[in-house]
Computed example of a mutant assay.
Amino acid sequence: MGANLIDGSSKVYGIIADPVAQIRTPEAMNKIIAKRGSQAVFVPFHVHADNLRTFVAGLKAWQNLAGFTLTVPHKEAILALCDHLGPMAKITGSVNVVRRAADGAWEGETYDGLGFVAGMRSQGLDPAGAKIYIQGSGGAAKAIVAALAETGAARISVANRSQPRAAILINRLNAAYPGRCVPGGAADLATADIVINATSLGLHENDPLPIDVSALSSRQIVAEVIMQPQVTPLLRGARARGCRVHEGIHMLTGQVVEIANFLEI
């Protein structure tokens, strides 16, 4: 599987993030491009949050820029910059992929949650009927909670350092999936079947743990959304407690094909 020649007819795709060095998406997407024989390349874009609007406005002038994906910290801010939203993006208030429509409009959708569920199932894990504890209420958390609710999780407890922010997510999801989501507390963490870190804590070795590992038990599954490092301090701590761990890379592998199809790569 060799790399395609980049020439004047090539389309460009990318991922917008800050930081971006840890991102694995270009590697995964360029493998799909090579496998499909597409005349395209997928590259990283390092963009600070306060520059997102200017950067995305500039992309509209880039005629062979056919679409892009996004991750931390841009998944919610991009909503206001999209002209149209897909059904999951409307439910979650989060976008992780944007494509250029025939009329030049930006169309946004999110596959984070669907990719997370697909990644779990690829590893023999099924969240249907499970009690879930999720830490975080940002873009990734919103998409994952929606997908878990759609999949049939029995109860989804949402915890966040900002309780008002968590309440917004809970209310938003309960409007689409009545009674499925509740505020998460210590008791929910202890009784959950699956514990998920959907925050950015763990990207850096000196980050505080997002979840109290001393509250975990060996019957639980502990999952990450962070892809690099592949084994975060949280996963190391959970494994030491006897938990089965689920690495963040599976969320990417669970959604890259669907994202490639959405972008028409």
Rank of each mutant, 00 (worst) to 15 (best):
A175V: 13
A176R: 11
A176E: 15
A176F: 11
P178V: 09
P178N: 09
P178K: 06
P178Q: 06
G179E: 04
R180N: 12
R180E: 08
V182K: 12
V182S: 09
V182E: 14
P183G: 11
G184M: 07
G185N: 15
G185L: 09
G185V: 13
G185Y: 06
A186M: 12
A186G: 12
A186V: 15
A187C: 09
A187S: 14
A187F: 12
A187V: 11
D188V: 08
D188E: 14
D188Q: 13
D188W: 04
D188S: 10
D188L: 06
D188T: 13
D188C: 04
A190L: 12
A190Q: 14
A190C: 13
A190I: 15
A190H: 03
T191L: 11
T191W: 10
T191F: 07
A192L: 07
A192W: 09
A192I: 09
A192Y: 02
D193G: 05
I194L: 02
I194H: 01
I194A: 02
V195Y: 00
V195R: 01
V195H: 02
V195S: 07
V195A: 12
V195E: 02
I196D: 05
I196V: 14
N197C: 04
N197L: 06
A198G: 07
A198Q: 06
A198L: 01
A198C: 06
A198D: 03
A198K: 02
S200F: 04
S200P: 02
L201T: 01
L201A: 03
G202V: 01
G202N: 03
G202E: 01
G202A: 03
G202M: 00
G202Y: 00
L203T: 14
H204P: 01
H204R: 15
H204F: 13
E205N: 10
E205S: 13
E205P: 05
E205Q: 11
E205V: 11
E205M: 07
N206A: 14
N206S: 14
N206L: 10
N206C: 04
D207L: 00
P208N: 04
P208E: 03
P208C: 00
P208Y: 00
L209N: 03
L209W: 05
P210D: 03
P210F: 00
P210H: 03
P210K: 00
P210V: 10
I211L: 05
I211W: 01
I211N: 00
D212K: 06
V213H: 07
V213G: 00
V213N: 03
S214N: 13
S214T: 15
S214M: 07
S214I: 05
A215L: 11
A215E: 09
A215N: 02
A215M: 07
A215H: 05
